[in-house]
Design a protein around this nucleic acid. Structure first.
Lengths: 346, 346
DNA sequence: ACCCCTTTTGCACGCGCGTGCAAATACCGA
DNA sequence: TCGGTATTTGCACGCGCGTGCAAAAGGGGT
């Protein structure tokens, strides 16, 4: 058994063909679903394969098929809770469905995203999913030219032949305004970041529009990164004067930083003095120190929709492209006045 | 230009050889570093490649080389902050070094970890990194038999020809005990989970041993998952009676849950009544609502060490296997009595 | 102009696999 | 026993690429 290994580190189909006394085609057919092999031959092949530890070389396989079943997963900031959750969910689903995930972490923001996507094209991936961040449009075009479908999550790119799966940011923003207005807040603020991505802007503008309809004007914070520290910064600055009683933070991370600074540094009582609403519903929002009322991004639904698009486009590349919009549901906790989980309204 | 595309969706080396009026070998050599091509031919090839959008097919390339430059990244619970950080850091580093990452998310604990690792073997990966969780030993053996190096992070597997990169859990546990004892705590507890992984047990036992040396006995909690909720559970139960003034939570997530329940549900003042130390130094530990004193896992160092092992073993597979132990440094914040960040000791 | 040495080029083969095609075998009814 | 059909098997080729080998081309010294 150890003598048979001489040919190389990996066992090849020719090896077990010889070992089983059949042709190499027979081996190939044994591992090809729906191919024609007698059960006797199949049995001998399987036994030899088991003994020698044979595994089909998917590299060579993909070479013949002109396409692998690898999906490229592109994104930034995978260490952030929301992105991490998306990644974990999507990768688990893809694996369960028989795909392989190639992870493309564009760590240095979008600067190198293009180069990284180009590299994965070399592996003839069957799809590229952009989970966050904005890929350069000429790269998207290059993917499409090469026949690789591109699926964008939360980043519409009008005019490109891509599939898009987005949360209803505008709906969430509008509902957030509704809730704060209903809680009696009249001095509103919205806290966003300098990133100005489509999702953040979408939430912000819908919030502002709805407030404007109600005749309430909104103070806007749009600086720095999209993280905890920036949320604190916003609160420290905006709450220096006393003019805000309701804040919509376009991200939970911002909201948690905002909450901490509001309570600990600026002495606000939440929700009595100040109501806060976030967006995403990351795990930390549910922690007892925060109990943040927020909108949940339907990660499971987003993931399933992405999967469906991938499968659909794999079997019929000519499927028309579409934008799928999924609803963001309110998760009621303790940071909005008069709106509390598990309690009657006061 | 559109007429040249007829051959198939992907442009092949033969296409641009024809287009540039040279042999296919010349094309191949143009894209092979160190090969012999005249600058005139190289220029013509590069121009044709640019026009037609040619990219070397790495699948076919790996077929010849008998090995790809894909690294398999195996793990569970990538949505947890610490694991997410490891994944983000390692994947970014690998990409920057010219490798590709194949993500293997063993979502359903270790049950399917074996099957998932086997699948990635089919892609002739050049290494497999197990970032957390325990792979079945027969699978590890199978990888090694196929000549694929296995690198384990924080999971020693004595008796296997693998490389191991671990944080000094025991050192951290011992130092944690030192700190709590120095703070005057005499009624100690250690909070762990039912997972009983090597890292958690290592921290726990070192803590208990050091306490025993000081003649202090330790109450141990070892139930449930390794998350925020379990930390709360531990505090709710253990702090029902009044007997604890110092707790070492073997994970930050546990510590944060423990802190919330201790303060909000059990009315303890931290650090006056109760000192708490965590482990990992996840971003949330630094948040103002917590300010958790904890031990930092040297993620950067772990990552660099993993990289070094991969490179080393790629160029010389016969390198002897080793265990690399990296130190865990204390991060002083506000949850240990008499030990505070940015302040003189009282 | 000639020879020798260096560099470049093309040919041909193999990497491991899937598959069309024709030969070979098995099966069945008369 | 035989003819006819259904099934199985092996051969040979191609997928896209890297590379050893020999032929061709270039360069320099006499």
């Amino acid at each position: 058994m150890s003598q048979e290994r001489l040919r190389g580190p990996f066992v090849t189909a020719a090896d077990i063909a010889e070992h089983a006394g059949v042709s190499r085609s027979a081996v190939s057919r044994t591992f090809t679903p729906g191919a024609s092999v007698s059960s006797a031959v199949r049995a001998r092949v399987l036994e030899a394969a088991g003994q020698l530890g044979y595994r089909v070389n998917r590299l060579a396989q993909s070479l013949t098929n002109a396409r692998s079943n690898i999906v490229g997963l592109v994104g930034t900031d995978f260490h952030q809770p929301f992105h991490a959750e998306c990644l974990a969910t999507l990768s688990a689903t893809l694996l369960a469905d028989g795909f392989q995930c190639m992870l493309l972490n564009a760590a240095n923001a979008e600067s190198d995203m293009g180069a990284i996507i180009e590299r994965v094209l070399d592996y003839r991936v069957c799809a590229i999913v952009v989970m966050n961040g904005t890929p350069p449009s000429h790269i998207v075009k290059e993917c499409l030219d090469n026949g690789v479908p591109v699926i964008l999550v939360n980043k519409p790119m009008p005019g490109f032949a891509v599939d898009t799966v987005v949360t209803d940011h505008a709906g969430g923003g509008r509902a957030a305004a509704d809730r704060l207005l209903a809680a009696g807040c009249r001095r509103l603020a919205v806290v966003s970041s300098g990133a100005r991505t489509a999702s953040l802007v979408g939430r912000l503008e819908a919030f502002r529009d709805r407030a404007a309809e109600a005749g309430v004007c909104v103070r806007v914070w749009e600086e720095g990164p999209t993280d905890y520290g920036a949320g604190r910064e916003a609160a420290l600055t905006m709450l220096a004067d006393d003019a805000i009683d309701g804040a919509f933070c376009v991200t939970d991370l911002l909201a948690l930083g905002f909450l901490d600074a509001a309570r600990l540094d600026r002495g606000r009582r939440v929700p009595d003095d100040l109501s806060v609403i976030g967006f995403d519903d990351i795990p930390q929002a549910a922690w007892n120190a925060y109990q943040l009322t927020t909108f949940r991004q339907p990660v499971r639904l987003l993931t399933n929709q992405v999967m469906q698009v991938i499968r659909q486009r794999a079997e019929n590349p000519a499927t028309p492209h579409a934008v799928f919009t999924l609803p963001a549901g309110l998760v009621v906790r303790m940071t909005v006045r008069g709106l509390a989980a598990q309690e009657g309204k006061p």
